[in-house]
């Protein structure tokens, strides 16, 4: 049952779940920053679920959009109701692959290229970005930064507040994976 459910959520790894090559975390941190000189807009979620398959070099992230915390309650409300439309699109997901070479046996931090599809607000877009991975036997640490624009995901921002929100939003991901048994 456990594996069946994982399969529906992370169907991508359908054939590899039985092996010991899957690392998982349910407390990955995703931070986004769209600050401008006029307004600091920073939000963070500590509840993203992420999976790495070290055999197939697959990477996957999912986060519930309502789990992002903002400094101001009003910003949180606008983010959920007007921009990301959480009731309609409660999840944001990334499914991708590490396209450059990666030695999982080394314990040095390696910078790799990741390519995959980011889906949010009902729109899927392909992205390529760099990630830093530090493997260890019982724990894999990974971090990545990518830049997106609200327009790429059909998120309309009223012109009255356009100047307050950065043209490019920086997403920062920090995760510490443990083996999934």
């Amino acid at each position: 049952m456990k594996k069946l459910c994982l399969l529906t959520v992370f169907g991508f790894f359908a054939f590899t779940l039985a092996a010991q090559n899957v690392y998982l975390t349910k407390d990955a941190k995703i931070n986004f920053n769209s600050s401008t000189p006029i307004e600091d807009i920073i939000a963070e979620s500590n509840q993203a679920t992420a999976v790495i398959d070290i055999e197939k070099n697959g990477v996957q992230f999912s986060v519930l959009t309502t789990s992002f915390k903002f400094r101001r309650a009003l910003m949180e409300e606008h983010f959920n109701e007007n921009y990301i439309e959480s009731p309609k699109f409660p999840k944001a997901t990334f499914k991708g692959k590490i396209t450059s070479s990666m030695d999982w046996k080394s314990d040095k931090t390696t910078t790799v290229d990741v390519k995959g599809d980011l889906t949010m607000h009902g729109v899927t877009k392909e992205f390529t970005f760099q990630a830093q991975i530090t493997p260890a036997k019982e724990k894999i640490a990974a971090s990545a930064t990518l830049k997106i624009t609200p327009e790429q995901f059909n998120i309309a921002i009223p012109s009255a507040v356009r100047e307050k929100i950065a043209k490019e939003v920086t997403l920062k991901i920090d995760a510490s994976f443990v083996p999934y048994h």
């Binding site: 994982l6 959520v9 679920t49 986060v63």
Partner: peptide, 9 residues
């Protein structure tokens, strides 16, 4: 309630 990933959060 913020929805479901693998678990309900």
């Amino acid at each position: 309630c913020s929805g479901m990933l693998m678990d309900i959060q």
